[in-house]
């Protein structure tokens, strides 16, 4: 949480053990952006993307760290985990593709729409993943 050339930075631990708190970073992010005065549409895009990314880290990667970088003209989210990595990114990006276990599905997750929505709601998304090492997803929303 430091200040570096006109960029406001926050970091949130996303707890992989505690499923009931999944989605909390997204709420924090929303509060911060609203206080700064971003428009509702931007806030909605960022918080949905953040929410999906956060949920994925909990379900598929055992948790991780979500970082938020706020600039005057763009918002960057960086989600880093040390989970299993994604074997086939283009397959994972397909709508409806999901490896989520049944108990998670019964809660209403695992529709396979997370990654596609993260892409849809942001202006730029880069997935950097390595099997057995983890995944880093960087998303940018321009204002």
């Amino acid at each position: 949480m430091s200040e570096q050339n006109e960029c406001l930075t926050y970091s949130f631990d996303v707890d992989g053990e505690n499923f009931t708190s999944a989605g909390e970073a997204s709420v924090q992010v929303k509060r911060i952006l609203r206080r700064i005065g971003f428009d509702p549409e931007t806030i909605k895009r960022v918080s949905i993307a953040m929410y999906e990314g956060e949920i994925n880290m909990v379900i598929h990667a055992g948790g991780g760290v979500a970082e938020l970088f706020v600039y005057e003209d763009k918002i960057v989210m960086k989600l880093t985990d040390h989970g299993p990595g994604i074997a086939d990114v283009s397959l994972a990006m397909q709508e409806g593709f999901s490896t989520a276990p049944d108990n998670i599905r019964s809660l209403g997750f695992g529709a396979g729409m997370g990654l596609p929505n993260m892409k849809r709601y942001t202006d730029d998304m880069v997935i950097d993943t390595k099997l057995g090492e983890g995944t880093t997803i960087t998303m940018t929303v321009n204002v």
Binding site: M1, E6, I36, G37, E72
Partner: peptide, 23 residues
Amino acid sequence: VSKLGTSRRHAIKLMADIQNVFS
């Protein structure tokens, strides 16, 4: 009331200052 500062730039600066004090 939930809005901070006069402009977005100003608000970002204030938020950063608040974070620094808070930490």
